[in-house]
Amino acid sequence: MSDAILAVMEQQEGKLNRMSWEALAAAQRIGDELSKPVEALVLGEGVRAIADEVAASKLACVRLLEDPLLKEYTPDAYCLALREIIAAEKPYLVLLPHTYQVRDFAPKLASGIERSFLSDCIGYRVEDGSLVFTRQLFQGKMNADISFTGDPPYFVSVQAGSFRADQVATGGQPAAVESFSSKIESGKVRTQPLEKFQEAKRTVDLTQAEIIVAAGRGIKEQENLALIQKLADALGAEVGGSRPICDNGWLPMERQIGSSGQTVAPKLYLALGISGAIQHLVGMKGARTIVAVNKDQNAPIFEVADYGIVGNLFDVVPALIEEINKAKGQ
């Protein structure tokens, strides 16, 4: 029984997902506090180099799981392989980054062995020797502290940005890479992944914009986007939007900011009538200065805003346009 904290590192086409390092940072901190060994797991095919890269971190070992059926991600193959290694190594806690891929397989993995999966956690504390995790409810408007009941292994995924990748501790010497051979039967893999592609036409590059004015569902109707455009014109800014605005076809997909759209880092980002769901925040919280206008003073967007105006955007934005034009006229 290894009792380890196991961080599952996500790679696609031989590249590590950045969020994996955040999960590893979390695993190291928890391992320290509980005095449990920390291990990392890399799975795929032909991914030895990634295991070696991860082995520079302070770890008890890196577990390398290679199989031709793991070359392309499928939930069936991933779960079969992971189930085997978990049964063999019996970790205490399996930590994963809360990526789209993890959302796709982790609930299946955990429930398949009658264990529970605490998804999208933003923090933890140790209370009387056991772990209590924090996760968000109501799209970030509330938090809840939750612990596991029953037996390990426990499964936890961590939200993007909750732990810092640059805090991963490196080891004195490379950790051992332990290969594990799985026995996945190809007949058990039911889904067949086909090509990956990007759809949005790139006519504008928001990643290069210095100022972005972004509208959310608070804008209510498509016609009202003219007001946002007017503000953008006054500022010499590009217009962006939250997902529902692009889903409605009010703005083209290429102007969607967030986890499934663009990640931007302008000098100034104005969020108008955007609540601040995590999937939006990950796309814009790198902006140097963030201004939010929202009628709800508890909207999570204010968690990242430098300046906030609590009010009706239909009153604030016209006033803002006027003041900007005045200031620029000087």
Partner: peptide, 23 residues
């Protein structure tokens, strides 16, 4: 297989400067 300890309004960690007054 989980136990809920507590639900609460998140504590703000960032100092947002709220600007008030008329629009």
């Amino acid at each position: 297989r989980q136990k809920l300890h507590r639900v609460y309004v998140p504590v703000k960690t960032k100092q947002t400067e709220f600007i008030d007054g008329s629009p």
